[in-house]
Design a protein around this nucleic acid. Structure first.
Length: 102
DNA sequence: TGTTTGACGGACA
DNA sequence: CTGTCCGCCAAAC
């Protein structure tokens, strides 16, 4: 079907919504959990299309290097620090905050 | 229809 | 640590 990608979008929303407060996940991690490895970029695009009013914790998604990829890093960093996550020099310790799923 | 772009990821120097 | 390169993929040109 042509909506296989539409389903992935809903999967991504559900997964991101499940990231615990105080934890982070990577784009690749979300893509894998959504059953779509190789689609990490798609995850980024989906999050970029969220309305500013969304309640989804999109700020808990960072890249595999532990860095913020969001074009507006300031906003994301504020949100992360607001829930106790330490962001040092634009970096976050995955070792310490990554959502353990498998 | 070919090329570029982007909130990615991993390997490597 | 930083920068480069390449694989991947859908959307926008």
């Amino acid at each position: 079907m042509a909506d296989s990608q539409e389903n992935i979008k809903h999967q991504v929303w559900q997964i991101v919504n499940a990231i615990p407060q105080g934890s982070v996940a990577t784009y690749g991690q979300v893509a894998r959990l959504a059953g779509a490895p190789q689609h990490s970029r798609l995850v980024g695009r989906i999050l970029s299309q969220l309305p500013r009013s969304t309640r989804l914790p999109w700020h808990r998604v960072i890249n595999s290097q532990g860095k913020i990829s969001n074009p507006n890093p300031k906003r994301q960093q504020d949100r992360l620090e607001q829930e106790g996550i330490v962001v040092l020099r634009g970096r976050i310790s995955l070792k310490q905050y990554q959502w353990q799923t498998d």
